[in-house]
């Protein structure tokens, strides 16, 4: 998709989201969380370019969320809390990344899962610090010095989530068009050649990994500030699985996929949970199966097919796995 078309589609999507948020106030919260998850999914998509699937990226969501929770009493200001928490996640990405970069494929995926589960256990067991499964409640932070309540605060976070979505989508697009991002796909197809050209392949992957942790961290901080309650469930393996699920649902071919997938997923989940709570997992599994079998390009692939008025066969390079 051309940059212009993608930007226009993104604007259209954003306008729709704003309309939705205006029409039903409770949707503001749902959509903010959806965009926050979309940020983490964007990181998953970036690593997918290198053929690597992280089954533990909720680690960075939770890391930032807890960082926000711990810092909130000391630093009750959104403009400081959010970047600080995201930075903690990026640092976590650097530390974890230095270790994980040595592995590929199933080992890469499982190692990420293992790290996230260790973090989950810590959050759950260190009761004195984290209050275990009860979690931590965040005091209401100020926004640029102003104390906002209710709807105004929610609108601010919704606007922030939307801005981060646009900003990071643009950054990832740039990244993927540059040698730094193109080399990611080189890691997938011919990693040794990169070394024989003088490019340190692990550093290429590490840079992407840190960016993905930063984006997941922004998402995590937004989730913490929106729900004002963090629990270890944020780091549980199902939360990581959800991110991979959304990545496949949305489609790996475009940065829009992350957010389209996340919004559709969250809306469906909230709606399904309200009406057919028992069948939610069944619906999830069935949809995943259908997407993999019939729409390997995900929702974005289907959208593109509609726009071009003919079914576009997903290019091999754009397959989500």
């Amino acid at each position: 998709m051309s940059a212009r078309n993608e930007f226009l589609l993104g604007l259209l999507g954003a306008a729709l989201l704003v309309l939705l948020a205006l029409s039903a106030p409770w949707l503001r919260f749902v959509l903010t969380v959806a965009l926050a998850k979309g940020l983490a999914v964007l990181g998953i998509l970036l690593l997918l370019r290198a053929g690597q699937v992280s089954f533990g990226h909720a680690l960075f969501v939770a890391l930032a969320a807890y960082a926000a929770a711990f810092l909130a009493p000391l630093l009750p200001e959104v403009a400081l809390l959010l970047p600080a928490a995201a930075l903690v996640a990026a640092l976590g990405g650097l530390v974890a990344g230095l270790f994980v970069m040595r592995y590929r494929d199933i080992f890469f995926g499982m190692l990420n899962l293992a790290l996230s589960m260790v973090f989950y256990s810590l959050l759950e067991k260190l009761y004195g610090l984290t209050h275990g499964t009860d979690g931590i409640r965040l005091p209401l932070p100020r926004v640029l010095g102003l104390t906002l309540e209710g709807a105004a605060y929610e609108w601010v976070l919704f606007a922030l989530a939307l801005s981060f979505a646009f900003g990071f989508a643009a950054l990832v697009r740039l990244w993927l068009a540059a040698p730094l991002g193109q080399a990611l796909s080189g890691i997938k197809t011919r990693e040794a050649r990169l070394e024989f050209m003088g490019v340190p392949a692990r550093r290429v992957l590490l840079a992407a990994y840190i960016l993905s942790a930063l984006m997941a961290g922004c998402g995590g901080a937004l989730v913490a500030l929106t729900s004002r309650h963090v629990t270890p469930a944020l780091a549980y393996w199902t939360a990581s699985g959800e991110l991979v699920f959304i990545a496949i649902l949305g489609g790996a071919g475009s940065v829009l996929g992350a957010f389209l997938g996340a919004v559709v997923y969250e809306l469906t989940r909230v709606y399904a949970a309200a009406t057919i709570a028992d069948a939610w997992q069944l619906i999830l599994g069935t949809v995943l199966l259908l997407v993999i079998l019939f729409a390997p390009g995900g929702l974005v692939g289907m959208l593109r097919g509609l726009l071009h008025r003919r079914p576009t066969p997903a290019k091999a390079g754009e397959r989500p796995a």
Binding site: Q182, S185, G186, K188, T189, R190, A192, R193, F196, A316
Partner: peptide, 8 residues
Amino acid sequence: LPQLFTEH
């Protein structure tokens, strides 16, 4: 054996 980036 040529070592090309096959997706490119």
